[in-house]
Design a protein around this nucleic acid. Structure first.
Length: 649
RNA sequence: GCUGGCGUAGCUCAGUCGGUAGAGCGGCUGCCUUGUAAGCAGUAGGUCGCAGGUUCGAUUCCUGUCGCCAGCUCCA
């Protein structure tokens, strides 16, 4: 971008926030830590350009808005750095920003810092906070700044200074004998940083590039009050309680073990859940004009060479050899689906052709990236490839988004992150087709009334895509659904159809998945519902509990009656107290507990308890069946939404 | 894959400054016959992740390796 010569004849008139506040008739009370001015936050040390905004608003030291917290946390990062420099004088500071709910600082030191070092650092931080050191801002000439940080042995800071555009001032913030390069804003004194604690320590590369030296990253969090900090720590604990890696085995759904890293052992209940989900998706796909197929798990290396996977994806593919031929275990289903498309001659009138597969894929992911069900080496995708004409892309994408949102809604997700990834620098296919494809995706998003984020340059080399992502319990974002335009693969693999002019042309191919991987989706589902799956998904919907040995046969009979009525029921006939059985079934998140004792046998009823909501009352078996059958089913049909059970008791 | 941490009974974890280990829960047996989130007693479980090294002796110290956890990078 060409920059005009800055018309900096007279330096712009500026005023400190305190003056501005006074001008506006507002006194600068002791708890004011900054001001908000035209959506911009200024700290008390930074002059505000006059005329920057009409109205300024003080920010108080109990503000819960994210700019105010960011300011606090950014200062907390400095406090951390100050403590580290005091304890480990040779440490070199890289960067230390505020994050979504805390802050970190990347530090290089002669030895890696470990979690054993944290208590000492934390203690020093508390001491520095107690001293209530004023935080002072200072603008420096570039040479002066370079000299200062060279003197202090901060090579990373020098690198950063050199990248600051020449027309931007260089500012440093000081507190006591500590000084850091920083554009601010910061709170006025370290005394505000009392509700601060260090969380964890890990590695990070300088500038996120693995070629660069690895630094120690220390994470912490900071809040304005101890109460807010405690609340945050409490929320973290809650989130951990939802962790699918703990809940899954506790609910007897699955386990993982080291002989099969990144691969799941599904137990009966988990596999039942898997099948319920698979059947639900299968039913919807049938209604939406998809044809389900099934393709080989292994294919000869030559197919992957033709598809381009061998050159781009080889690292991630498992291979196996037989009779002097090398096979790769499929990491994706697309090349195989193209092979099905290629059988016979296709007319433009045949399109779109939608081939779906619950494709079992293997990818040799780096060991460090594996994470419960959310990141595996073997997983099943609800994959499909739509072969269509360029003019059909919009309709297909439009229909897909509607289908996907319907599915997410039925599974209890209404908060979906949508991202449109557009053409990268390195790409294949001509620009006219890219224009048309990106436009089709964007128009479909608008037609569906979706808000989305554009990620410029993040598209695949073969085409633009829309990603649909969900959050897990720790706020991490996991991509599930996707729809990707592929302008390249059909051509590479020689797939064609005959158009209305009798010409053979390559179809556009849309890769699309709703759940992404069924395994990952189940992991997110468990966390989202904290294990309390909607009734239609619960692997066991009801447990019949016998009170004593006298009630065993009646319990067994009731269980069978429920099963015959299509309810997934088990009988708990163990010689244990009722309280014990209720506790165990509750921990396994079995939604309905049906108790049979003398009273119920005499009355011909059953005592119903909902594991989450508690006692419901006594009902006849007919009433129980009616209640279970009337509970909401997934839609994409005439029925209503899902039974929601959001939290634990 | 990289950096750091961790790996002890089925699970959660304690412990050994180097002398082959212990608790709670769970399991089993018996008692109890149970009324809405853990009844009582007894009892059996362990090559202390795996492989080397140091040592009279290693679960403990060292090295390597595998796995797990957090983050980085990558990704459904």
């Amino acid at each position: 971008m060409a920059t005009q010569v800055p018309e900096k004849k007279v330096p712009e008139k500026t005023m400190l926030p305190a003056e501005l506040l006074a001008q506006g008739g507002m006194a600068l009370s002791a708890d004011v830590i900054g001001v908000r001015c035209a959506a911009q936050v200024y700290d008390l040390m930074t002059p505000v350009p006059q005329g920057a905004c009409e109205r300024i608003e003080p920010i108080h030291a109990d503000d819960t808005s994210s700019p105010a917290l960011s300011m606090l946390r950014h200062s907390a990062a400095h406090l951390l750095a100050q403590a580290v420099k005091a304890l480990f004088p040779g440490a070199q500071l890289a960067t230390g920003p505020a994050t979504e709910d805390g802050f970190y600082y990347d530090i290089a030191y002669e030895r890696p810092l470990t979690s054993d070092d944290l208590p000492a650092i934390e203690a020093r931080m508390a001491k520095l906070a107690a001293q209530n050191l004023p935080i002072v801002r200072q603008e420096l000439p570039r040479e002066e700044a370079l000299r200062l940080f060279a003197e202090r042995g901060e090579p990373f800071k020098l690198e950063i200074i050199q990248e600051i555009p020449a027309d931007q001032p260089i500012t440093v913030y000081r507190q006591g004998d500590f000084l850091d390069l920083c554009r601010g804003p910061h709170v006025p004194a370290t005394g505000l940083l009392k509700a601060t604690c260090l969380m964890k320590i890990s590695g990070a590369y300088w500038r996120g590039n693995p070629e660069n030296p690895q630094l120690t990253r220390i994470y912490g969090t900071a809040w304005f009050t101890q109460q807010a900090l405690d609340g945050y720590l409490q929320r973290l604990k809650e989130a951990q309680r939802r962790d699918h890696r703990l809940l899954g085995p506790a609910m007897e759904l699955f386990h993982l073990q080291e002989e099969a890293p990144g691969m799941v052992f599904w137990h009966e209940r988990g596999w039942r859940l898997f099948r319920i989900i698979q059947d639900d998706i299968r039913r919807r796909l049938e209604r939406h004009g998809y044809a389900e197929v099934h393709t080989p798990m292994l294919a000869d290396r030559s197919l992957w060479e033709r598809s381009g996977h061998w050159s781009l994806f080889q690292e991630a593919m498992f291979t196996t050899a037989s009779e002097h031929r090398l096979y790769a275990v499929k990491p994706m289903n697309c090349p195989c689906h193209v092979q099905i498309f290629k059988q016979g001659i296709k007319s433009y009138r045949d399109l779109p052709i939608r081939l779906a597969e619950f494709g079992s894929c293997h990818r040799n992911e780096p060991s460090g990236t594996l994470h419960g069900l959310l990141r595996l080496r073997a997983f099943v995708q609800d994959d499909a490839h739509i072969f269509c004409r360029p003019d059909q892309v919009f309709d297909e994408v439009n229909a897909f988004i509607a289908l996907l949102m319907r599915v997410y809604h039925d599974f209890g997700f209404d908060d979906v992150l949508l991202r449109l990834a557009t053409r990268p620098q390195a790409r294949m296919g001509d620009d006219a087709l890219w224009d048309r494809s990106e436009q089709a995706l964007e128009e479909a998003l608008r037609a569906q009334g979706m808000s989305y984020e554009v990620l410029p340059g993040e598209g695949a080399f073969y085409g633009p895509k829309i990603e649909f992502a969900l959050n897990d319990c720790l706020g991490r974002i996991w991509q599930c659904g996707t729809i990707q335009v592929d302008l390249v693969l059909p051509g590479r693999l020689g797939a064609v159809y005959v158009d209305e002019h009798s010409q053979k042309v390559a179809p556009v191919m849309l890769h699309r998945a709703i759940l992404g991987s069924l395994e990952r989706f189940i992991g997110i589902l468990i966390e989202h519902h904290a294990g309390w799956l909607p009734l239609w998904l619960a692997p066991v919907q009801a447990a019949v509990l016998s009170l004593t040995e006298r009630h065993e046969s009646a319990a067994q009979a009731l269980c069978q009656q429920l099963q015959e009525a299509g309810i997934r029921a088990v009988a708990d006939l163990r010689n244990e107290t009722l309280g014990f059985k209720i506790r165990q079934q509750t921990m396994q998140k079995v939604p309905y507990l049906l108790v049979l004792g003398d009273r119920e046998l005499a009355e011909g009823t059953v005592a119903v308890r909902h594991a989450f909501h508690g006692r419901i009352g006594t009902k006849t078996v007919a009433e129980v069946l009616q209640m279970l059958h009337n509970s909401p089913q997934p839609q994409d049909g005439p029925q209503k939404g899902c039974l929601q059970m959001e939290n634990d008791p």
